[in-house]
Nucleic acid binder design. Sequence first.
DNA 1: GCCCAGGAGCCCG
DNA 2: CGGGCTCATGGG
Length: 263
Amino acid sequence: MNNQALTLEFLYESLYTQYGPQGWWPLLKLNKFNVNPTGRGKFTGYHPNEYEFPNDEKDIFEIMLGTILTQNTSWINAEKALANLEKYSMLDIHKIDLLSLEKLALLIKSSGFYNQKAIKIRNLTNFLIKNPIDHLSHQNTDILRQKLLAVNGIGQETADCILLYAFKKPIFVIDAYTKRLLSRLDLIPPESTYQFCQNLFHNNIPINLEIYNEYHALIVQHCTHFCRSQPLCSICYLNLKCKKNIILKPKSKKKQKKPPKIK
DNA sequence: GCCCAGGAGCCCG
DNA sequence: CGGGCTCATGGG
């Protein structure tokens, strides 16, 4: 494995061998420990090797909410917001649509950017009322993508996340992790656009729902633990494959000494 | 205390 | 069209 050329396809096999099936997208109803009284702990709604989810409109809507709630936000904070919505029986398109923006924002506070996200979620519910899920799910993928992108608050990544994980369309999701990993592995130029990256996957990886599902999830898994913003190259299993092998520069410690505290 | 997190829109050149 | 700015909580 160490003398094989690093390709997108090889990277997938490698990540899958290393981390195994990820079981995305997590769902509240599969959370075996449900509400953790401490408010901490990992979300457990993953379902490795089970690709039949989501299997009803409630779960599809939950996933859509999750894609907005987790925008530039750790999943644990987004999950808390989701759990809170469920706690108040608000995982429902029409119920959310009737909430005031202020109340909605309060319910999703833990996810950060809550005022913006409240508006985005409202835009989503407005959209879904005009375009019911059972109707959308029969649409052509390209048309559906365009309709999602027309919703203010749904950008390319969120649209593709919804297509892949909510509507089970074989569309590859590109996120900041994907660009970071591929660029460090020297598979793309660092300034590559979303379209360029997505085309790279679509043209080099078989168009297969389960593979696209796992691949993106595996990239997130690898990047959250190792290929972080400040990467842990010394303990990264891809170390020998990574041309960059980043030497950590000490962060700009330009700071002068802290002024003494005023008591 | 600090950095960072499963982005998007808007504004500006 | 692309870079910079804003939005904001909570975990490590």
